[in-house]
């Protein structure tokens, strides 16, 4: 194994079902239902998935949902904004914890 992440592995995702077929079946059905058109459009869901993929930094998901976003009609402007949303939440989440730092400093400080 040259690398932990191999693009070819994405197409082997379903092999996870070999040792737990019932769980895989339930996951696949639920996953399919999640991404089908509903109160949110398929394009909106693909853009959310793209943003989350960047937040959790999953290369497989970035690969899959970059293509899915394009195939659902999203453009680079929209996809880039989606990634900024993910980045803003990640950055903001770090920064807002600064309040804890301030609280602790205030508590132990003189």
């Amino acid at each position: 194994m040259d690398t932990y992440y191999n693009p070819e592995d994405l197409s082997k995702f379903s092999s996870i079902g070999e040792d737990a077929p019932e769980l895989w079946k339930k996951f696949s059905e639920w996953y399919g239902a999640v991404f089908s058109e509903g109160a949110l459009s398929e394009r909106e869901k693909a853009l959310i998935a793209l943003a989350v993929a960047h937040a959790i930094q999953c290369p497989y998901c970035i690969d899959a949902y970059t293509k899915a976003s394009l195939e659902k009609g999203a453009n680079m402007e929209q996809m880039t904004e989606a990634i900024h949303v993910a980045s803003a939440i990640r950055g903001g989440a770090s920064l807002v914890h600064g309040v804890q730092m301030k609280n602790i400093t205030a508590k132990i400080g003189m």
Binding site: S41, E42, R43, L70, E71, K72, G73
Partner: peptide, 17 residues
Amino acid sequence: NPCGAYLPPSQGSIEAD
């Protein structure tokens, strides 16, 4: 037509855009 190696989106949704 797509600007790359991917499938086109649904005709109705991209037409509205």
